[in-house]
Simulated scan of single mutants.
Amino acid sequence: MSAINAEPLRRDIEHRARADARHDLIFRLLLRLCALLVLATLLGAALSTLWGGRDVLFKDGFHFLFSSDWNPVEDQYGALAPIVGTLVTSLIALVLAVPVSFGIALFLTEIAPSWMRGPVATAIELLAGIPSIIYGMWGLFVFVPFMASIEPWMNDTLGNIPLIGQLFQGPPLGLGLLTAGVVLAVMILPFISSVMREVFQTVPARLKESSYALGSTKWEVVWDIVLPYTRSAVIGGIFLGLGRALGETMAVTFVLGNSYNITSSLLMPGTSISSSIANEFNEAVGLHRSALIALGFLLFVVTFIVLLIARLMLRQLARREGR
């Protein structure tokens, strides 16, 4: 009798096991489809820009990459000036934003009183939600006049320093690479500081308390405990902000000056890949449009290289930590 009663139970268990295996397979296939959809979308966008810019890329080749000439009237196009402008403004933004973001994150996690942490963190997150065109308008109407007023001082003082003096020589226009870099720094600062704050909060309290008990100062705790524990995530947050800066369009367009001349001065106007596309795409036809689409493909390539470097750095750090 017991064997007869056990048979339906055994069948029910086997049926549930098969159903669970089938549901698990469906779940894995759905997740894999989502991942492949992202890759297909990215690959499709890259291939479409490559195909759209084929007239310039396949015709001029390396000349398009390393030439600074940009003359739509004579159908002469070079991507060097937009590439240099994109990299320079993003580098300036990173140099300015990373130390400030690091200080904000440390203040909120290690120094600020509890009643202050919530409002300040909320304000930083609200900065990340401001549209880029608002930053561009603020940069054009507020920050550009301010830069124009202090650039003569920068020219007279910093411009006389050997080696780096030529970076700060130029007319007080207000528009230029330095202005665009500062506006980008303000834009990416909320992203980097938010990531840093979140990862700093993941450090176990017992590690910091143990270090304090051994007589360490707050700086020593941060340098020897917090940073090593969160190094990989901090670098990831920095490169996330860099990716945001590389692709920014409207804020840079307002304050960059949109000049295709490559100069050694950060005070002079320049251009970037995204701002060139935004300014000229509506009126572009023929080879001109192909050149702008090719710039879009180059932006894909530059961003991919930056993210690849980030992944290699994180992998190297992971190997060192594993040792």
Rank of each mutant, 00 (worst) to 15 (best):
E151W: 09
S264G: 09
L267A: 03
G139H: 09
L33W: 00
I238P: 00
W115P: 03
P99M: 13
V252Y: 05
L108N: 00
W51D: 10
R28Y: 10
I273Y: 02
L314D: 12
D224S: 15
E220W: 07
A278N: 08
L47R: 03
I83N: 04
S211L: 12
W153G: 08
F102M: 10
S67W: 01
L31N: 14
R319M: 14
D55W: 04
S216W: 03
Q166P: 06
P131I: 10
V144R: 12
Y212Q: 08
S132D: 11
A93T: 00
M147T: 02
A121N: 12
I192F: 08
L33D: 01
E220R: 12
D156G: 10
R32G: 15
R311F: 06
L292G: 05
L43V: 06
S114V: 14
S90L: 03
V234A: 03
S68W: 00
M196A: 07
T253I: 07
L57Q: 00
S259R: 08
V186M: 15
L298N: 07
L312F: 14
F239P: 03
R206L: 02
L43H: 07
H23Y: 13
T122D: 09
K59W: 04
Y260L: 02
L37A: 15
I238A: 06
L256M: 15
I13H: 14
I134C: 12
L227A: 00
L25R: 12
S90Q: 11
M116R: 10
W223T: 12
I238H: 03
L292Q: 01
R311M: 04
L25N: 02
F141K: 08
V98R: 08
G159N: 04
A185L: 05
L163W: 14
R315D: 10
C34V: 15
W115L: 06
E7D: 07
P145R: 10
D24R: 05
E151T: 15
D60E: 13
K59F: 10
W223Q: 13
L9V: 14
F300L: 13
L307C: 08
L30D: 03
H15F: 10
E151H: 13
A3Y: 05
D20H: 12
I130L: 15
G241K: 08
S48A: 15
T230W: 00
A6P: 01
P269D: 03
A17Q: 07
R18Q: 13
D55M: 10
P152H: 05
N282V: 03
W51A: 15
F191Q: 05
Q166F: 13
P269L: 01
L96W: 01
A40S: 04
A19Y: 09
G215P: 08
L80W: 06
A6S: 10
S68E: 02
Y229L: 04
T109I: 02
R18C: 09
L42A: 15
F58C: 09
L242K: 12
G159P: 11
L267C: 07
T157R: 10
V95H: 03
R11C: 01
G270M: 07
G170Q: 11
P8R: 09
L47G: 11
A40I: 01
A233Q: 11
D75K: 11
A97H: 01
S48N: 02
Y260R: 06
V144C: 03
V95C: 06
L307W: 03
E209Q: 07
F62N: 01
R315N: 12
T157G: 12
F141E: 06
P162F: 04
Y77H: 07
Q316G: 13
V199N: 00
L173G: 11
V142R: 01
I133W: 13
I134S: 08
S276P: 12
A105D: 00
